[in-house]
Every structure is written in C-alpha cells, then in structure tokens.
Design a protein around this nucleic acid. Structure first.
Length: 553
RNA sequence: GCCCCCGUAGCUCAGUAGGAUAGAGCAUCGGUUUCCUAAACCGAGGGUCGCAGGUUCGAAUCCUGCCGGGGGUACCA
C-alpha cells in the first residue's frame, strides 16, 4: 500500500534529519499518515511537525521544512509541501496513479488483500439465535455483520472460520417442547393452554400441523403427562432448517453449525467446572453453584448451576469457549452479540481469562438493536410475543442485497431504525441500486466496446490524465487501506459508504469522459482498462458485503 | 440506583489512534439527454456536533458533571 510507503518515507526523513543534526535525537512518536479532507492538501499528510514541535523546541513549519528537505525521492510522489500550521502534504504523481490501473487489473479480487493476519486462526461466531422460532428481522443485522467481517478478515490474511451456535439444550428448549406439545394436543381437540411462558407465535401451530402429518397421533400422551422428547426434537430440527435456509437466502454461509449439546457430550462442561474449581472460583450457596466473579473484577457472583440442577447459559457458554480455544485451537475468537446480551460479556471474559486465555484473544462485539417500524408504527420484535417480523419477510420485501447493504451501513454502536415502508418505497432510490448500477453500467460499456471497437486490447494507461479519471483511480486505491482499517477495528460498516463513494467517482467519470469513441481509439482503449479496473474493484467491494454485482439492471 | 451504547443538517447516518474551512444519502428547490443504461450528473438552501466545564498548540473525537433516548441488571437466553 502506498500509505505504508509514505510512512516509511517520513520515518526515513526523520532519521536522516537526526543524522544530519537538523532534528534533535529523541524518541519519535509513531508516524501517522492521514488523508486530508481537502484536495489541495494533497493525497496524504502527516502532522508529525506539530507533534514534535514542543519536544524539539522548534517551530512546526521549520520542522516540516526539515522533514521535506530530507524526504527520500519516490516515483509515486510528485510533490511534498509544508503547510501551516505544520503539516507535510504529499501529492501523488499522475503517472504513478495511472500505472495503478494495470496493478489493479492484474491483482483482480486480491487487490483488496492486505497481509496483516499472518494466517492466524480466527473464529467469527454470529447470529446463534435459539432454534425456538424463525429468525427475526433484527437477527439479519448480525448475519450481515458477521459474514462480512469474516470476508474482511480473510482478505486481511487471517484463517477464518464462521460458526453458528445452536442452543439445542436448556430451558428455552424445554419451553419450546411444551409449547409445541400444547399446540399439537389442541389439534386433537384437547383443551390445553399454551404455557404461560411459552411461544405464542403462529408458527408453533404450523409446526404442530407438520408434526401431525408426520407422526399422526403417536405423539399423544395421556393427559397431564410430560411432552415426548421426540416431538420437541423434531420441531427444533425444523426450526434449524428454517434458520439455515433464511441465512442461505440472505447469502450468508457458515463453515460450522455447532450444537450446545456437544458441550455436554464431549465433556467440556465438566472440564470447565473442574478448571474453575481448581482456581478456587466456584462456591456453593442457596442450593446453587456459583462462579465467584466477585473475587475477580466483578461486584457480584454468577450462577453456574441453578438450584434445580440445570446449568445456566453462562456455564455452557464457558464450556463452548473451552472448545474454541483449547480443543480447536483458535488464536482469536470474535463473538457478535446483541445489546440484550450485554450483561454476559464481563462474566464470560472473566471465565476465559481464568482458564488462562490471554486478554485480547476473545473479542465480544456488542451490536445495538434494530428497531422496526412501518412509517410511524413501531413494531415489536420479540419472539415470545409472537408478533414478529421475520427476517424472511424483510428479505422478500426489500431484497437480499438491500438488506445486507442497509444492515451493514451502520456502526455496531448505533441502533438501526428500520422503516419497512421506506425500504420498500425507496427501492429505486436505494443506495444499493446506485452502487450496483455503476457495475452494470460498466458491463454495458464493455459490451458496447466489443461491438463497435476493433481491437480494444492493449490500452496505454499513460493517456489517463483527466481529473475524473484520476479521482476514480484515487478512490480505488482506498480499498486495501479500508480493509486494513476494518480488520483492525472490526468495523465493517465503512464498506457500504466506500461502495457509494466509489460508485460516485465512477458515475462522475462516466458523465465527463466518453469511453467508447471510434474517433479516438487510443483514448478508448486506455479508458476501457480504467473501466475494467473500476468494475473489478466494485465487484470486489460488493463481494465483501455478500452482494451481487449485476451486469445488467 | 448501578453498568453498557447513543445524542452531528428537516429525516437516516458517516466522520477510520485529537488535526487544516464538519461530510453523505434521502427530502426540498433549480438545471442537464440528437451521445457507451437519466436507477445518472451539476447547482442551491440547510449545523451552537445535546448542555456546561476540563485536558491540549489543536476537541464532534479524550476526561468530569448534567439532560435526553435505547439496552442490561443479581438462579431465562
């Protein structure tokens, strides 16, 4: 990346200045290269002189001049300027910019790649909603974020596995089984109510009907007896299929589907209880088993095994993370959770640290929730209430690509306010089409060129000197930098914004620069290369978001 | 009460280890097509970055307090 090269230039300039005695011997702060907002400030800039001024007992502008004087030559840099109050600005050379078109074309999708991961094994776990009902609209946010983050990390050189954790054991599943059995019995005329804490959604009736088709009345037990396990398991398998299908329809693929039951079957649950006991972090009182987090950095203990004998969500989750780190050996694990699970973050982090996992190897991203509305009408999203908007409905209503784009475009820290009416109304004004249209337009240009231009190959990129051409190239060069930033900060929401900027740069070029022009064959060939490069970068960007890059619209 | 997140244009939101004159989309108003897709482009208006202090050469960004919204909160996940 050119940004890294400029960083080296600045560091070399500082070192040369010190050797020459123009800059005092002193520890230098890390060199920060930023992108100025205004074009006249160049393509890249550093405020190093401002930072050094005090310690060096010199004026920032003088320091800037010193750095500029010692700056090594680079074919990429046309000009180095010092600007008040103390910036050093770098202007890229036109010929170097043009040369990047060939670099991009040669690299193809790998143009977005940066080598910061070093092959580290990273797991990204996301969605992991209970298989007690269909995914709701809010779950789509984690699907979009998680799958995109995984692709970003792969592009950044990490060895990534994605995973969905099915809670197929525990209390919620028991409630699910009892609800389904109640609905099932109702189909046979029994007057039994849905459990008070049960799932009132209509999908439970659908499931009961499916079960009746499959099992007939063989799942009926004498009145008042407990529901048969087989019925509940059957219902849950159906729901898991729904979930897998909904995610697939959103273009979200997983490497692994993990079942909570594994934590017990493989003995991880017992293992972590033993580990925590050895550390003296397990106490018993009031008939329950506790994780003594108050001995660590928390103000209260957490229950691991309820007085009923059933383990809590936390306990199995600790066992699950034992598997992630000790059995499967991930270097890093990233979990994406909704803000409604925020209270679980601290206990789980404390538990993994107690097990000897170094700080920083487990990252839990808390994403703020999605609020749904139709115009002014606020919609409930809770699964219990039954009155949910499913992810499937949203995908069918606004389309998978718009869904991905919209869910991705907000920072995890911001709540998403999803107006279904607006999403539908705006379907033609939606930014997602704006971006995809840029890609389709390019495909159209290339089709036209094939029909009208003899021998469109071998363009001379040095002919690319128009301001709009150079702006487009500049914008393309952002992508690897952005992948670098997103992989470090785990913030994929920059991608949709970048996609829009890239599309804007292309549309602007399209208006100002005619590509297919029989009168100017050389220019046409050069611009065809540029356009092909833009198409490649657009497709790569869309691909990182899991979106399609259509050739026609 | 305590803990976490947010508060930036009429609306929805960006602002990438504190940097130069705070940005985008939508909405509003005005303009652009004998020409590769007008699902596009160009222009205009619109801001006390919730409020008040503090740190700094420099704060939307960091710290403290307050106000407002969302989430969590001691054997549900």
């Amino acid at each position: 990346m050119i940004k890294d090269e400029i960083t080296k230039l600045v560091e070399e300039a500082a070192a040369r200045a010190q050797r020459a005695g123009d800059l005092p011997e002193m520890a230098l702060p890390p060199t920060v290269i930023e992108r100025p907002q205004r074009p006249e400030h160049g393509d890249y800039a550093t405020s190093l002189p401002l930072q050094l001024a005090r310690a060096a007992r010199a004026k920032p502008l003088d320091l800037g001049a010193t750095l500029a004087r010692h700056m090594p030559e680079s074919p990429a840099i046309e000009r180095v300027e010092v600007a008040p109050p103390g910036f050093v600005n770098f202007h890229l050379s036109q010929s170097w910019l043009a040369s990047q078109v060939d670099v991009i074309l040669e690299a193809g999708p790998s143009f977005a790649e940066v080598a910061i991961g070093g092959g580290e094994k990273v797991q990204v776990e996301f969605v992991s909603a209970n298989p007690t009902g269909p995914l709701h609209a809010g779950n789509g946010r984690w699907a979009a974020m998680g799958s995109t983050l995984a692709r970003i990390l792969r592009a950044a050189g990490y060895d990534v596995e994605t995973e969905y954790y099915f809670n197929d054991a525990g209390t919620q599943i028991d409630v699910f089984g009892r609800t389904l059995y109640a609905r099932y019995q109702q189909l046979f005329g029994r007057d039994v109510p849905v459990p008070e804490d049960g799932y009132s959604g209509a999908y439970m009736i659908d499931l009961a009907e499916q079960a009746r088709e499959k099992f007939g009345e063989t799942m009926l037990r004498p009145e008042g007896e407990a529901p048969p396990d087989q019925l509940g398991r059957y219902g849950m398998e159906q729901v898991m299929d729904w979930i897998r299908r909904d995610l697939a329809d959103m273009g979200v693929e997983y490497d692994n589907w993990y079942r909570e039951q594994t934590v017990y079957d493989a003995g991880y649950f017992d293992k972590v209880m033993e580990l925590l006991r050895e550390k003296g972090l397990v106490t018993e009182r009031e008939g329950a088993v506790w994780f003594a987090t108050s001995k660590l950095e928390a103000d209260k203990d957490e229950v691991l095994i309820r007085s009923s004998g059933l383990p809590t969500y936390l306990a199995t989750d600790v066992g699950y993370h034992y598997d992630k780190f000790f059995v499967r050996g991930f270097d890093r694990v990233i979990d994406i959770w909704g803000a409604d699970h925020q209270g679980h973050v601290k206990p789980l982090l404390l538990a993994t640290e107690a097990m000897g996992i170094e700080e920083g190897r487990l990252t839990i991203i808390i994403g703020q929730l999605v609020t749904l509305r139709r115009g002014e009408e606020r919609l409930k999203i809770s699964k219990r209430s039954g009155d949910i908007i499913t992810l499937r409905e949203v995908i069918e209503e606004v389309g998978k690509d718009a869904c991905l784009f919209f869910f991705l475009s907000r920072s995890a820290d911001a709540t998403i306010d999803f107006d279904l009416d607006l999403a539908k109304e705006q379907s033609s004004e939606n930014p997602v089409y704006y971006v995809q249209y840029a890609h389709a337009r390019i495909a159209g240009i290339i089709r036209t060129a094939k029909e009208r231009l003899p021998d469109a190959e071998g363009g001379d990129i040095s002919l690319l000197t128009h301001e709009s051409e150079l702006s487009l190239i500049r914008k393309m060069l952002h992508l690897p930098e952005l992948v670098d930033v997103m992989a470090r900060t785990l913030e994929p929401h920059h991608l949709p914004h970048y996609a829009q900027e890239l599309a804007t740069a292309f549309h602007d070029f399209y208006e100002k620069c005619r590509v297919v022009d029989e009168e100017h064959l050389d220019q046409s060939r050069a611009r065809l290369k540029l356009v092909a490069a833009a198409q490649s970068v657009l497709a790569t960007t869309l691909g990182l978001m899991g979106m399609d890059a259509p050739d026609r619209m």
